[in-house]
């Protein structure tokens, strides 16, 4: 349990709730007759979320909560950030450079980041995976994946 996360988290959730409350007022009304329009459900839920967040915020100040403290863990932030960056790049480049190239690059890099010792093996596995998925899905199952970029002329 992490008091800090819960405290700031409850504030964030309260803001989300407040956002939904405020924005639900701007939802246009419709001709569908009855008092219960499209804004009522999100409005009510927003209020509930704010109330629950306040309750959590209050709970974090209770003695019991503080006593539990937090165990210091060693987290591998460097590895995580590298992996996250690789994933984000992969996701953004998927359409511009195509599935096979993006996936092979992503897997090759992340295999090495995660501690694969053999560059050779990483390259083979990543190529097999990306080409295999593309062939099976696009050629056999007729699915849609971004192909090779036009400037490659394949």
């Amino acid at each position: 349990m992490n008091v800090r996360f819960d405290r700031y988290g409850s504030i964030a959730f309260a803001l989300v709730g407040a956002f939904f409350i405020a924005e639900s007022q701007h939802i246009s009304t419709s001709a569908y007759g009855s008092q219960v329009g499209p804004s009522m459900f999100p409005f009510g839920l927003g209020i509930l979320l704010v109330l629950l967040s306040l309750r959590l915020f209050y709970e974090t100040f209770q003695a019991k909560y503080r006593a539990e403290g937090q165990a210091v863990e060693k987290l591998l932030y460097k590895r995580f950030l590298l992996m996250l960056a690789a994933t984000v790049l992969y996701v953004l480049l998927l359409e511009p450079i195509g599935y096979v190239i993006a996936t092979a690059l992503f897997l090759y890099v992340t295999f090495l980041v995660m501690g694969s010792k053999s560059q050779w093996r990483s390259a083979v596995v990543s190529l097999l995976f990306s080409v295999g998925v593309y062939v099976v899905y696009v050629q056999l199952l007729k699915g849609t994946l971004p192909g090779f970029p036009a400037w490659l002329g394949v």
């Binding site: 599935y99 996936t103 992503f106 897997l107 992340t110 995660m114 694969s116 995976f129 998925v133 994946l145």
Partner: peptide, 12 residues
């Protein structure tokens, strides 16, 4: 090998 592949499968 397993973890990057799970990410790749999720994305796919």
């Amino acid at each position: 090998y397993l973890l990057p592949m799970i990410i790749a499968i999720s994305v796919f």
